[in-house]
Amino acid sequence: MRPLLKIMAALTFVFLTIFLIGQLFGILTVDRVRGVLEAAQQVDPVYIFGAIVILLLLDILLSVPTLATTLLAGFFLGFPIGAAAVFTGLTFAMLTGYTLSRKYGHRAISILIKDETERALMAEAFARSGPAMIMLARAAPMVPEVTACMAGVTRMPLPRYLIFYALGTIPYVGIAAYAGSVSSLDNPQPAIFTALGLYALLWTGWFIYQRVEKRKKPSNPLP
């Protein structure tokens, strides 16, 4: 498990650094995302769909505020079109991370983990724990990107990754986009309560998952 945690920590550090740089320079804040969508609406409402897809495609590099963008997609496009735009953009982003990691990630892995046996143990650990991580990844920023890259690096079959990705992402996107569609500037409560509820549900899932994993560990593990 340690090799897996080591790689995931390294990936998290990379995405966190990018996120902090983006926040420092105000590259893709919630206000900027809203400004982009308002500008697209003034040109042609059809462009909003494309703008959302492009913004969320950048999520693999710039840590776009996903939940806020999903709520705004529902607000501007309604449901289910807003949900479709978000799911399309997120899927493109995750596939980009998966593909690049599958093709080039082994080079970085060989630098961080030089022992071939440890690399095999890392892949085995992710094959065992990865599905739950992928489904619950929306509980925190950067975790979806990390799990997509891990799936690529460990060569998890793409159909298998997509199944668990869809199981975790479709309900998240659908609920958030619908909440955005029934919210307004004068009545933002549906969006606010939905955001809080989604995070509470996902964190509860993480808590249960961690408890189950601890129970699976032997009482006297070998050193």
Score class of each variant (00 low, 15 high):
67 L>W: 02
212 V>P: 01
130 G>D: 05
41 Q>H: 11
48 I>W: 01
210 Q>M: 11
199 Y>F: 13
125 A>F: 12
77 L>T: 06
113 I>E: 12
191 A>F: 08
165 Y>K: 07
92 F>W: 07
85 A>C: 04
214 K>L: 11
8 M>W: 05
44 D>V: 08
198 L>F: 04
217 K>I: 15
169 T>N: 04
89 G>S: 03
138 R>F: 10
106 H>W: 07
106 H>R: 13
102 R>F: 08
9 A>I: 05
222 L>Y: 10
220 N>D: 09
48 I>H: 00
2 R>T: 07
165 Y>L: 11
5 L>F: 07
211 R>M: 07
76 F>G: 00
55 L>P: 03
106 H>F: 08
63 S>P: 12
1 M>E: 02
142 M>A: 10
222 L>C: 02
127 A>K: 14
201 L>R: 01
177 A>P: 13
43 V>E: 05
164 F>A: 05
28 L>H: 09
4 L>F: 06
207 F>K: 04
176 A>C: 12
180 G>R: 13
173 V>I: 11
32 R>W: 09
121 L>T: 15
152 G>A: 07
186 D>R: 15
212 V>L: 07
89 G>W: 04
145 E>S: 10
169 T>Y: 08
172 Y>M: 10
44 D>F: 04
191 A>K: 05
16 L>V: 06
54 I>K: 00
179 A>Y: 09
97 G>I: 03
52 I>F: 01
209 Y>L: 06
13 F>Q: 00
141 P>S: 07
37 L>Q: 12
183 S>P: 15
26 G>W: 03
217 K>W: 08
166 A>F: 14
158 L>Q: 09
167 L>K: 08
132 A>E: 00
159 P>I: 10
175 I>M: 07
47 Y>D: 00
140 A>G: 00
62 L>D: 00
156 M>E: 10
98 Y>L: 13
40 A>Q: 12
204 T>K: 01
222 L>Q: 13
78 G>T: 09
199 Y>T: 10
217 K>M: 14
58 L>K: 01
